[in-house]
């Protein structure tokens, strides 16, 4: 009986339906908590580009974010879109559009003492690594050219190689004080070289590479280049 085709087919279908239903219930009941976690994680990533958050508690992160971070949406020309909210713009979906047509989120980080001043501007990026999507937040100084800090994330880069963009804090620090734009706001971005161990402290547009992870580095380079173009007009308009 157990070898009849009809039995096998019915058995498979029933098993799949039951398994899928159980998963659906689990997923449904946990979604809210998961979304909270993702939102909190994003806050941490944004703040991580401008300050050391390892010493902060969750409550402190929430408080600093609420007091000092002001998201807004701009278009390619750098014009602020007051009718759009952060939740209306999905960075990954916008990537499917031409750079000129995209809506771009940007986070103003207010000055710690004087909340009428913007200390930094943080923008999100999205790109492709070797295996899966990569993303980052890039914080710019108020001059609009200099990088204050970056934080990278990835989905499935190779642990110990490409995954270092996130796990190895040294990689992140290499981008600090580099220039995203040249003197006239040409979108030069920052280029991560192949091979590791060189000294690029004199070159404002080059950082040391990751040995064994050239393809991830290429993904990072392409991503930064693309978004330096996307945000070019906005940063130009600051001066």
């Amino acid at each position: 009986m157990r070898n009849k085709n009809s039995y096998i087919i019915i058995y498979t279908v029933a098993l799949c339906v039951i398994a899928a239903s159980v998963l659906a219930v689990v997923k449904q009941s946990l979604t809210e908590r998961q979304d909270e976690n993702i939102a909190y994680d994003n806050k941490k990533k944004i703040l991580n580009t401008v300050m050391d958050i390892t010493v902060l508690s969750k409550a402190q992160v929430d408080e600093i974010y609420a007091n000092r971070v002001r998201p807004m949406i701009i278009d390619f020309k750098g014009v602020i879109q007051t009718d759009l909210k952060l939740k209306d713009v999905d960075v990954v979906k916008q990537k499917a559009l031409k750079v000129e047509e995209r809506m771009l989120p940007i986070y103003r980080i207010l000055d710690e003492k004087d909340s009428t001043k913007n200390s930094y501007y943080v923008f999100p990026t999205s790109g492709s690594g070797l295996w899966d999507k990569i993303s980052s937040f890039v914080a710019m100084e108020s001059d609009g050219k200099t990088i204050k800090g970056v934080s990278f994330s990835h989905v499935g880069e190779t642990p110990g190689l490409g995954a270092r963009i996130k796990s190895d804090a040294k990689i992140r620090l290499r981008y600090e004080n580099k220039k995203m734009y040249a003197d006239e706001f040409e979108p030069v971005a920052v280029y991560m070289v192949k091979s590791e161990g060189g000294d690029y402290s004199d070159d404002p547009h080059t950082v040391d590479g990751m040995s064994g992870a050239t393809l991830t580095a290429n993904g990072v380079n392409d991503m930064l280049k693309e978004y330096s173009l996307a945000y070019q007009n906005f940063f130009k308009s600051l001066n």
Binding site: R2, N3, Y7, I8, Y11, T12, L15, C16, A19, V22, L23, V26, K27, L30, R33, Q34, N37
Partner: peptide
């Protein structure tokens, strides 16, 4: 009840169900 010819597939479905549950719980 498991049909012998597809027992590995059945095992995989059951295992992946629990793995996915673990994954979702950790994510939450």
């Amino acid at each position: 009840t498991i049909p012998p010819r597809i027992r590995i597939i059945v095992q995989l479905v059951v295992v992946s169900l629990f793995v996915q549950i673990v994954s979702e719980i950790l994510k939450a």
